[in-house]
C-alpha cells in the first residue's frame, strides 16, 4: 500500500477507562494526575487494535453493544486520547457521533447551524456558501429562524444530519445516527454519503443495521469484546458476526 494513500492508521491501540465512582480523587491526584491509573480500577474498552484504512475506503464497524465501536470511533476522531498505541490520520476529520451535538436549544436554527457548523469543521466561507443547501436538505426552511427547542424531533435530527453531510472532510466518521429519521430522509442521507465517498472522502460507519452497512460499505471490521475479530468483505464479516451471536 502506497503510504500517501493511507487515511487512518491504528497501531496497538489500547483504551482504558478508570472507574472511580465510589471514591473522589485525592487532591494531589487532581492537581497533577501523576500515575493516576495505578491507583484506579480500569476497564479496557479496546484491546490492542491494529488496522489501517486507505483513502476513499468506506468501512463499516460492527459488533455487539459494548464491543468498543463507539470508543474506537471517538479515538479516531481525537475526542479520546489513546491509553497506549497510536492513532494517526491524514487530512481533516469530521465526526457525527450524535445528531445535534453542539446545538443549543435556545438558539434559532440559523444560529445553531453557524455554531455547530464550526464545531463540526465547516469554515466560515463554507457555511456562507452552503447555508441554503443545509437548510433545504434538512427541510426546515420555514422554521430556520425559530429557536430549535420548538422543533419536532424529526426536524432537529434532520438539521443535525444535514449539517454533518455538508462538511467537506477527508475522513468522515458516522456513529449509528442513520436509524433516526424517516425512510425518505434516510435514503437521502445514504445517497449523500455515497456521493461524498465517490468524491474521495474516507467513510467510517458504525451501525447495528447490517443491511445498511452492506449498502454503504465495501469493507467491514468486526469488534468483539474490545478486540478486532474480523476484517474483510462486508458479506463475510457480517456472517462471522451472525455466527458469533448464535
Amino acid at each position: 500500500m502506497e503510504k500517501s494513500r493511507v487515511a487512518v492508521v491504528v497501531e496497538g491501540l489500547i483504551e482504558e477507562f478508570s472507574i472511580s465512582e465510589d471514591r473522589a480523587l485525592s487532591f494531589k491526584e487532581v492537581i497533577s494526575r501523576f500515575r493516576l491509573s495505578r491507583h484506579h480500577k480500569t476497564v479496557r474498552a479496546l484491546e490492542d487494535i491494529t488496522f489501517s484504512i486507505s483513502r476513499q475506503e468506506s468501512v463499516g464497524l460492527i459488533g455487539a453493544n459494548g464491543s468498543g465501536k463507539s470508543t474506537l470511533l471517538r479515538c479516531i476522531a481525537g475526542i479520546l486520547p489513546p491509553t497506549r498505541g497510536n492513532v494517526l490520520v491524514a487530512g481533516s476529520i469530521s465526526s457525527l457521533i450524535e445528531l445535534g451535538a453542539g446545538f443549543h436549544l435556545e438558539l434559532t436554527g440559523r444560529e445553531n447551524v453557524l455554531l455547530a457548523g464550526a464545531l463540526f469543521g465547516l469554515t466560515r466561507a463554507q457555511l456562507d456558501e452552503k447555508f441554503d443547501a443545509i437548510v433545504d436538505f434538512a427541510e426546515v426552511r420555514e422554521e430556520i429562524d425559530q429557536p430549535i427547542r420548538s422543533y419536532s424531533s424529526g426536524m432537529y435530527v434532520r438539521l443535525g444530519f444535514s449539517l454533518a453531510v455538508h462538511v467537506e472532510p477527508n475522513i468522515f466518521l458516522i456513529d449509528e445516527v442513520l436509524a433516526v429519521g424517516d425512510e425518505h430522509f434516510q435514503r437521502k442521507c445514504i445517497r449523500r454519503i455515497g456521493e461524498m465517498n465517490e468524491q474521495g472522502v474516507t467513510i467510517i460507519f458504525v451501525s447495528h443495521d447490517l443491511g445498511l452497512v452492506k449498502k454503504v460499505c465495501r469493507r467491514c471490521i468486526l469488534l468483539h469484546e474490545g478486540r478486532l475479530a474480523e476484517d474483510g468483505e462486508p458479506e463475510a464479516v457480517i456472517n462471522a458476526y451472525l455466527r458469533l451471536i448464535d
Binding site: 500517501s4 492508521v9 486520547p81 490520520v89 469543521g121 465547516l122
Partner: peptide, 13 residues
C-alpha cells in the same frame, strides 16, 4: 493530506 498526524486538531476550521 499525505501527512499522517494524531487526530486532534484535524478540523478545517
Amino acid at each position: 493530506i499525505d501527512e499522517l498526524r494524531p487526530p486532534g486538531g484535524s478540523s478545517l476550521v
